[in-house]
Amino acid sequence: MSKPTDLVQGTLDLLILKVLALEPMHGWAIAHRIHQISSNVLQVGESALYPALHKLEQQGWIEAEWKKSENNRRAKYYRLTRSGSKAMAKEADQWERLSAAISLVVRGA
């Protein structure tokens, strides 16, 4: 399904969807949360994050809404849609298979 070049992009999409599955949040919080959950391993740059968010919105997997943020300023909050959560399940499944396969090869070799 995934071409090699899609790997990184596709993975970021999955991470975003996964984080948004917890609760609606804005771009900064998404990057921050990914950073935290991955025990400070994954750093998501804004130059990758925002295009990905806009693409996901265009695809209809997430939707956006302007709300007051925790520090009382206007921020754009993203929320998972129904088709988004379906897509997430599929992507996650695919990721599991892929990563399992890769580990098999890496360990076996």
Binding site: G45, E46, P51, K55, Q58
Partner: peptide, 18 residues
């Protein structure tokens, strides 16, 4: 500095919106 490429990412966001 970290967000130096901000213009470029704006352009990319626009592309993503097709």
């Amino acid at each position: 500095r970290a967000m130096g490429a901000i213009t470029q990412s704006k352009e990319e966001c626009r592309d993503m919106r097709g």
